[in-house]
Amino acid sequence: MTSHQTPAHGIADGTTAADSGTWRLGDLTVRRVGFGAMRLTHLADGTPSDRDRVTGVLRRAVELGVNHIDTASFYFSPTRSANELINRALAPYADELVITTKVGPGRDPSGNWWWATPGQLRGQVEENLRQLGRDHLDVVNLRAPRSQTPGSIAEHFGVLAELRTAGLIRHLGVSNVRPEQLAEARAIAPVVCVQNAYGIGSPAGEHAFLDACGEQGIAFVPFFAIAGAGREAGVVTEDGPAVLELARARGVSTAQLRLAWTLSRGAHVLAIPGTGNPGHLAENVAAGALRLSPEEIALLEAA
C-alpha cells in the first residue's frame, strides 16, 4: 500500500457499494461507487498488470456490490485490453451490471492517439461490442478532445443518437465537455451523464457545472477524483498536515477522504475509482459509506 492508501479501520466491516446509495442512468440503477477500468491494463510505471490479479479484482468488485464499470476500447497496453479483461472476468454478465464506455479517442496498435470522425464512431461502438461480447452497450459517452473544447460536438453526438435509435446503444453521455456542449447534446438526444475531470481543487466553474447537472437530473461522474493533478500517474502530491490528521482521526486513508468528499457534492455524483490492487478496491468501496461533517468538508476544501 502507498502512503495514500491505508486500512479503513474507521469504516465498519462488511461495507459494500450498496452503502454508497444509488442513482439512475436512464432506466438503469447504479450504485454510486463504481469501478474505473483504466488501471487494469498496466501499472503507473507502464509495466503490464498481472492478468489473474486484475480479473480477480473485477470479480471481487462485483462481489462487493459494484454494478457500474467504466471502460473504453482504448484502454489497452501491448499485452492487455480492459474490455477483454472485463469480458473474461465477468461474462456472462449479471442483469444488474451496467457497463459504460467511451468513444471519440482511438489508439493505433503502436499506442498513438487519434480522434474519430463522425463516420468512424460506429466502428468504435462495434469494437466495444465485440471486445465486451455484448449485443448493445448500456451507456456510451462521447469524449470531446481537449484541443477542441469548447467546439461543437453536434455532428458526432448525432451519430451516436442514430446508433441509440438503432438499438446498439441504450443511453448516451458526454465527457470532457463544457456546459454549452452539454446543452448542444441535449438538444439532439437525452443525456444521462457527464464525465469530466473533477476533484477538490477544481476551479469554481467546474463546481457550478456539477451543481447544474444535478439540477437537470444528470449524473456527474468525476474522473481523477483521487489522483487530482497526477491523473494517469496517480497521486503525486502529498496531502497537507490537516488532511493527514483528519485521516488519522477518522481511521481512514486520504484517498478515502477524497472519494467521500466527491460523493458529498450531490446525490447525482458517481465515483469510478480504478485500481488493480485488491486492497485498494476494498478501501474505495468502503469510502462510499464514509459521511463527512460540514466542518470536515470545509477543512478538505481549504486544504
Rank of each mutant, 00 (worst) to 15 (best):
T6R: 04
G10V: 00
I11M: 00
I11T: 00
D13E: 09
D13C: 09
T15V: 10
A17L: 07
T29A: 04
T29P: 04
R32H: 05
A37V: 02
L43Q: 10
T47E: 02
T47A: 02
S49C: 14
D50K: 04
D52N: 08
R53S: 12
V54G: 05
G56P: 06
V57M: 05
L58W: 01
R60V: 02
R60E: 05
A61P: 07
L64K: 00
V66G: 07
V66R: 01
A72I: 04
S73D: 13
T79M: 08
S81C: 08
E84F: 00
E84G: 14
N87T: 09
N87G: 15
N87R: 10
R88E: 06
P92L: 06
Y93S: 01
I99Y: 07
P109W: 11
G111C: 12
G111N: 11
W115L: 07
A116R: 06
A116D: 11
P118M: 06
Q120R: 14
Q120T: 08
Q131G: 15
R134F: 15
D135C: 11
D135P: 13
H136K: 14
L137Y: 04
L137C: 11
V139A: 06
V139Q: 04
V140K: 05
N141Q: 11
R143Q: 14
Q148M: 09
S152D: 09
A154P: 05
H156K: 02
F157G: 03
L160T: 01
E162P: 05
L163E: 01
R170L: 09
H171W: 15
H171N: 11
V174R: 00
R178L: 13
A183N: 06
A185M: 04
R186P: 03
A187E: 08
A187R: 15
I188V: 13
P190E: 03
V192R: 03
A197R: 15
A197Y: 09
A204C: 12
E206R: 10
A212M: 05
C213I: 01
C213S: 03
Q216E: 06
I218S: 01
F220Y: 12
P222G: 03
P222R: 07
F223M: 15
F224S: 06
I226W: 05
G228Q: 15
G230R: 01
V235Y: 01
V236T: 10
V236I: 08
T237D: 11
E238C: 02
G240M: 10
P241R: 11
A242F: 14
L246A: 11
R248C: 08
V252R: 02
S253Y: 00
L257G: 03
L257R: 09
L257C: 06
L259H: 05
W261L: 15
S264R: 04
R265I: 12
G266K: 08
G274I: 09
G274M: 08
P278I: 13
G279P: 02
H280Y: 15
L281V: 12
R291S: 13
P294T: 00
E295P: 14
E296V: 14
I297L: 12
A298F: 14
